[in-house]
């Protein structure tokens, strides 16, 4: 595992997404723009975080690198981390209902005896929550993504088995959404 290389490659990846965001093209980018417009209305409150890489204090945050990228880049990020021997710990979905967005957070760690953790996060539009699956890269991510779909309804494009998981087979709701009421 090469920390410097991981940092450099992820930084480049995040920067690439930033450029693409300025000149939006293609279908995935269109979804991004919708999200930005929704955010723009309440920009005076707190500006949304831009794509990019942050180095964080492990003692305070529990992670070394915190990367925000576009949803269509998560597979590339997974490939970068996989080639360095990192493993995926979990996939967390978060419902940011005020910004009309979902956030998908991938938590990577290194199991080779050295202390290194990376958070990769991507935000998608809440109305069209499509994120490509990383289960092709990490077999173990299959279940994490299925759980996230089950509880939040984030659609992992290309996932082999998006079926009800923790919830009953006939459930037609996603309980971890903030607007869900029992």
């Amino acid at each position: 595992m090469d920390r410097v290389k991981i940092k450099r490659e992820l930084e480049m990846l995040a920067a690439k997404g930033l450029v693409a965001e300025e000149t939006p093209e293609g279908e995935v980018q269109a979804a991004e723009v919708d999200g930005d417009e929704a955010q723009g209305k309440k920009k005076e409150d707190d500006a949304p975080r831009e794509n990019g890489l942050l180095e964080t204090d492990y003692a305070a945050r529990g992670t070394h690198l915190d990367v925000q990228i576009n949803p269509d880049q998560v597979v590339r990020a997974a490939e970068i981390l996989d080639s360095e021997g990192m493993t995926i710990e979990m996939v967390t979905g978060v419902d940011w209902i005020k910004e009309n967005q979902f956030e998908v957070i991938y938590d990577y760690s290194y199991t080779g005896g050295e202390l290194f953790r990376v958070l990769v996060r991507a935000r998608v539009d809440r109305d069209k929550p499509d994120v490509p699956t990383v289960s092709e890269v990490y077999g173990g991510a299959n279940w994490h993504e299925r759980e996230t779909w089950d509880l939040l309804g984030i659609n992992f494009v290309g996932h082999p088995q998006l079926e009800r998981f923790l919830l009953p087979e006939d459930a037609d709701f996603h309980p971890l959404r903030k607007d869900f009421t029992a």
Binding site: T87, T111, L115, G139, G140, A141
Partner: peptide
Amino acid sequence: AVSLCLTGASLRGSGVDYDVRKHF
């Protein structure tokens, strides 16, 4: 074992040296 995200004794049984108590 690493790819399947195993941890604990299930991972260490395969020879991977990883224990949160030691490393974190």
